[in-house]
Nucleic acid binder design. Sequence first.
RNA 1: UGCCUGAUAGUAUAAGGGUAGUACAACUGUUUUUGGUACAGUUUGUCUUGGUUCGAAUCCAGGUCGGGCAACCA
Length: 553
Amino acid sequence: MSEEKSLNFIEEIVEADLSAGKYQSILTRFPPEPNGYLHIGHAKSICLNFGLAIKYGGKTNLRFDDTNPSTEETEYVESIKEDVRWLGFEWANELYASNYFEQLYQFATQLIEKGLAYVDDSSSEEIATQKGTPTLAGTENQYRHRTVQENIELFSDMRAGKYKDGEKVLRAKIDMASSNMHMRDPIIYRIKHAHHHRTGDAWCIYPMYDFAHGQSDSIENITHSICTLEFIPHRPLYDWCIENLSIFPSKQYEFARLNITYTIMSKRKLLQLVNEKHVFGWDDPRMSTISGMRRRGYPAESIRDFCEKIGVAKRENLIDFSLLEFCVREKLNKSALRRMVVFDPLKIVITNYPNTVEFLESENNPEDSNSGTRTMPFSKELFIEKDDFMEVAPKKYFRLSPGQMVRLKSAYIIKCESVIKDAVGNITELHCTYIPESKSGSDTSGINVKGTLHWVSIAHAINAEIRMYDRLFQVEDVANAAGDFKDHINPNSLQVLANAYAEPALQTDPPTDACQFIRKGYFILDKDSTSTQLVFNRTVTLKDAWAKEVKKA
RNA sequence: UGCCUGAUAGUAUAAGGGUAGUACAACUGUUUUUGGUACAGUUUGUCUUGGUUCGAAUCCAGGUCGGGCAACCA
């Protein structure tokens, strides 16, 4: 039982319960409301719930918390299932709180019969007023003293559709003076003449979260019901319902939700970004949604690894976005195919190279000896990156400049002989010479150069559109920044490069996973690609020590 | 001026009365046909005041600061 990695507080609880014989095995659940797409915060919960079951030999249910028909849709159910599966998890049962509507109705009736629930005719404003404030006790109203029989009939009439929305509610009769606001006779059923995505028009009353969640856990025999910190004040009510209904005692445990710098983690705000067209959709690669990250090229393994690294605790946290990027790079460095793409071209002519084409071999991934090689056409006229040449080079600049030599990756060492300019003095091309005996793999030149550049043969290059993403927000702590969160949107979060020049392998053999454009970063083919136009999303840049050096100067 | 929570490097997370450790970030080097990777190293920390103890991040008491709670949302 003593592993190297220390346990988080929930794992400790589970191990204690198991070793005390409280449970033979554990059952957890992931309970999203189908009113939006899943985001990286949900991934933390998914990894926790499913991870616990895997680690301790239990099971996990996927349960849709669909008790509010006005916000929920089947589209969301489908996306949630896709995202959980993509993350690499399989649920034991696909369930819905709406499966239990009849059972929940019976539970409510039982409470009424025990004198623990009553129908209240007050308006929502009246109920709010009577509730008091955190420092002022609430007051009881006349409806609280209705008889059991009267309540049974009224509740039955509510179900039968005799009342309009808001006319009546069912409340638990607990304590209007409780220091916990949630215990001041919480509403447990409301009237909503709305179409439900699963039960259709069968119901016009719907249970509130507090009367559905715990009971659903209990019905499923969930042993450990894990949720976020804001539900701590609900726990006494969760336990109250289970106790007064005498049903299976599921237990609720709370952990701190995930926050990441420069991003938002709220379904409501994410929906706003989509509706107000600040992004192109739920799966926009800049979004913190699972689908956005998938489209961006983040591997599921990286997201799981990230969730493992951030840990589980009760303290509020704000995780550096760079940790997520680290996880992505760490995985992709090992698995991504290497390719060459020139973003901003500068033509070079190798004056002493014949008018022929040579196919040079280049490794697909130096980190993976099983990844093999590919060939790249090499010719007299090439493109290199404009950034990789400076007419007047500063100290420690290892790239090309007049009279200097560099290696072209997997090809030859070249020397810049002259700079060709147009009438206004713009550099139009470079004339270089190559060292024939410096060919990669059979270099006998004895020359050592500091810089290695990526390149493409102009005649063979194919066109590609590159979409480069940056953080969506400009402030670290978006949720707590002053003003509206939309004031902090980064106006440059997307830069599109319409004409990049890619090596032919990218077209003849399009990669399905993210690949590395050497010296540029990791990129993945986007679904917007067509047979004639490749479109790539930048997943993440490479670390760039030179950029840092330049910044310092 | 209520109730509930929490506080360990810049950010997270361990140490459960006995060496404050790990990861990311930052910074130095070494290696390198990616200024990538890999490797080696450096910097930075127990909110505060008392108490118990041979010994406290850990136990006790007070304070300070942060978060949550008054939706017919979840």
